[in-house]
């Protein structure tokens, strides 16, 4: 059975790793932004809603 997987060159591996780290950081920053932003915008009022 032949191995049809794509083999990355070292340069491609480095580039992929760099992009993955940047993406992870951007996602983490987005989560923090939404959390902190919601907290700053609504504060304790976030719980003040009709059920």
């Amino acid at each position: 059975m032949s191995d049809d997987r794509v083999t990355l060159t070292p340069k491609q591996k480095r580039a992929q790793r760099s992009r993955s780290i940047a993406l992870a950081l951007a996602l983490a920053a987005f989560v923090i932004l939404v959390y902190v932003g919601t907290w700053a915008k609504l504060g304790a009022r976030i719980l003040d809603r009709q059920m």
């Binding site: 794509v6 990355l8 491609q12 580039a15 992929q16 760099s18 992009r19």
Partner: peptide
């Protein structure tokens, strides 16, 4: 299959 060699710095 063209695989990207773009780094985060390119973005």
């Amino acid at each position: 299959i063209e695989l990207s060699e773009a780094n985060a710095s390119d973005y």
